[in-house]
Design a protein around this nucleic acid. Structure first.
Lengths: 161, 161
DNA sequence: TTTAGTGCAAAAGATTTGCATCTCG
DNA sequence: CGAGATGCAAATCTTTTGCACTAAA
């Protein structure tokens, strides 16, 4: 998957992180390096739990505690951002990734990204009206994805029998 | 504020709930009735934990488990809605209370409600585009309220000295 | 060498669940 | 009476922490 060493997201995120750590006298350990490489080798939303399962499946040996500690640092470093959905905290790339909003399936947890330029305007308008200085926003549409909606419709029919 | 007995939120919510239960052969127990009355006797955001503390302080004897079970039903009945604020799950009235969104001050935690009809349209539009069945949405504008923005500007000047 | 990082297991918190026992309808 | 509801405690689940040990720089 990953071939070009110089400009792929994984290595530039790693550099950014190393910089962040160096600046505060922290060290970049083997575990942290492996995690950053793994996390930035593809773009997707993930939960801490899922990440732990994934890296274990890949054979990496990093403890639960270290994963949580590293995620917290990556957030603090501005490389990751957390999102709280209904019943899960998801992480997503912050560094080098455009702003977007989300659709969240309440049934299967699927997350779909979308962008809606109108939101930025609306946000400024509302903020001005309330004398707020807006810094960011979050728009989440919760509901059912196509397959879960169908599945639920089916289940409902069965219930009626 | 609200004095007329017939139409106060607490009793109409109770009726709604009784209806919901009856429709599915469930019973309205003493515990559930007390909870609904308490919850709808005022409008505010609350967490399950806070509710449990509050009712205990009022001398009501209802177990933790029953509170959770009742909250789940109230959500299912469409009387309550859950929201994730910060790192806690908050409940708020859904029944008889207009949909709204929030401005959140990152500095002092102040929450201001606002309504923006355009969001409903936008939500339907986006959902349709992604074949989602939207059930609700959440739009949060994060930033600084007026006083925190001023305060911060002041602090910055000091930092420069 | 020295201090930060790691793993482990125990702790925390919030919510859920199994089960014997009440209670509504 | 019989299906539900309740309370209690134990069980879950995710995330955090204390501590002795290991390893970056």
């Amino acid at each position: 998957m990953e071939t070009r060493r110089d400009h792929d997201p994984a290595s530039s995120a790693e550099e950014k992180f190393a910089e962040y750590l160096a600046l505060r006298g922290k060290r970049l350990s083997r575990a942290q390096r492996e995690l950053v490489r793994y996390i930035f080798s593809y773009h997707d939303h993930f939960t801490a739990t899922k990440l732990i399962d994934d890296i274990r499946a890949k054979g990496m040996k990093i403890s639960r505690a270290t994963v949580y500690r590293t995620l917290a640092r990556l957030v603090d470093a501005g490389l990751l951002r957390t999102h709280r959905f209904e019943d899960q905290v998801a992480y997503e790339h912050q560094y080098g990734y455009p702003e977007h909003d989300h659709l969240y399936c309440r049934n299967c947890g699927k997350i779909v990204e979308f962008t809606a330029p109108q939101l930025a305007e609306l946000r400024e308008h509302v903020a001005r009206e309330h004398r707020f200085r807006a810094q960011s926003h979050r728009f989440i549409i919760t509901g059912l994805c196509e397959s879960c909606a169908l599945q639920q419709a089916r289940r409902r029919k069965v219930d009626f029998i």
